[in-house]
Write a protein that binds this DNA or RNA. Sequence first.
RNA 1: GGUUUCGUAGCUCAACUGGAUAGAGCAUCGCCCUUCUAAGGCGAGGGUUUCGGGUUCGAAUCCCGACGAAAUCACCA
Length: 597
Amino acid sequence: MKIEDQISASVRKGIKELYGQDVPENLVQLQKTKKEFEGHWTLVVFPFLKISKKSPEQTAQEIGTYLVQNEPAVAGFNVIKGFLNLTIASKVWVALLNRIHSDAAWGIKNAAADAPLVMIEYSSPNTNKPLHLGHVRNNLLGNALANIMRANGNKVVRTNIVNDRGIHICKSMLAWLKYGNGETPESSGKKGDHLVGDYYVAFDKHYKAEVAELMEKGLSKEEAEAQSPLMQEAREMLRKWEANDPAVRALWKKMNAWVYAGFDETYRMMGVGFDKIYYESETYLEGKEKVLEGLEKGLFYRKEDGSVWADLTPEGLDHKLLLRSDGTSVYMTQDIGTAKLRFQDYPINKMIYVVGNEQNYHFQVLSILLDKLGFEWGKDLVHFSYGMVELPEGKMKSREGTVVDADDLMESMIETAKETSGELGKLDGLTKEEADDIARIVGLGALKYFILKVDARKNMTFNPKESIDFNGNTGPFIQYTYARIQSILRKAAEAGIVIPSEIEANIELSAKEEGLVQMLADFPSIVQQAGTDYNPSILANYAYDLVKEYNQFYHDFSILREENEGLKVFRLALSQNVGKVVKQAMGLLGIEVPERM
RNA sequence: GGUUUCGUAGCUCAACUGGAUAGAGCAUCGCCCUUCUAAGGCGAGGGUUUCGGGUUCGAAUCCCGACGAAAUCACCA
């Protein structure tokens, strides 16, 4: 049982005895005592004034006195206005650290056999261009969320839906045929996704030129765009693709394979992965069936031109197109099809879509449609809606070349980490492999933490001109603290000091040490909250607060030089467990921690 | 225009879901390495929480209004 729950129960009992009335649990507000005041937990007594019919101060006095006499964990109290600050005895904190110490997976739950199955969709790239900064946020959030859901005792299936078909893919293919001269990733040394992306850009360039030329001949912009031979060829290619034309399909497979090899490399570097990948080329026809089924059941209606619609005005929304008049699918149809396949493949209890907030409306509609179509989890599907990553001058625009490429970004972060480490002399005496690995961990840690510490639903700003910091509230700051702790533990081991599994309770702790144990004790509920709120940033902020507190402790107290043996092993155990929890918290965010840096 | 989201220090972000004097980092200016890793620690300055009302013991947080920003409202995905 958590200390705060124990105290909370005693408070209710005390109020019952003092004032003769039961108070509901939610009126007992126990919060961590603010730093400026003495104590560990603070009870807000305002809600009880109606019952006590006394002043805030007097009520707090009475409850405090009761707790000191009747609740063994409470050693003392002080009252400031309507706030009752409770002090917990040192031996309680030592006992708590012992409990944390004995639990290697403190705060992390394992999935039971009958645990709910959560499927998380994230990444969802197009196969016509490499991943960029927006995908980075998506991937990091999706990966972290998957870890967090698993740590909360759920079975988790990570999934990706690859948008591998459509006119945009044909554009890259066509441009490659026309201007590629048979270039391959092998022949050019280019990463496959970048190579294909380059041809997508090439298509756009030539197409723009064509349109401009046609407009000079007096055509309007619309006419020119419609008559552009390139665009017509691309459309023709799409028709052939849909008709299963062998040559087009072969080219499509070849170029997509290049892209996937490139994506895999990016994903591996980023440290994210998937348990099951779906391809739109395999799901888009499924949705059509499901829509027609819904049409038969009278859930949808058909217009005169043959298009199929859903009337969502009863739900306060609009009419939504589900099938075009020529019978082909739209985006929504594909998502329905993908949902159908997933439901066939897994006994899904909850579906989480990690998709940008620009698609809020889409998922509102999807939820309603899936529900109508009889998917049990449709109604409460979770759209994990995250904000855009913006540059100081606004959105990233491929036309203006301001798109921040994921591979470039990671590479430059690692490079910066390497330079910084070198300048600080941190790499002396390490092999090149060790040095490279540390640079990778630190560089990626800086990037990941930078993105994950921000509340996911908010838009965030990224300035490519200023490199991401390595000092202050950053990933490397947290990693550094971890490395420091490991250094102390190594030295302790060298000196032959063994940390006992049970620390003796007869030592007096400082407020700093008690505060650290209290923070460690909070970890399980932080993990839980991150799960129920779908909010990885809580973990990032927690990790920062914890190591900031630890660094102050590290600065003010001796560990290995402490003469009192009991205190020494306590501080070692405390350090070890701070390290353990930091590693765990960062691990949930998908951030590695180095043994030295 | 409708809907949704957002507006906190010069900048990037917090604020335990309505609690105490709104906190961190960056940047600026000082101080601390013959002592366990200075990617660290300590200190200073920096705020009418966009503005105006309301709700109550108490509001950055909830409600109403104004102003500002973003997204979306496609037979694109």
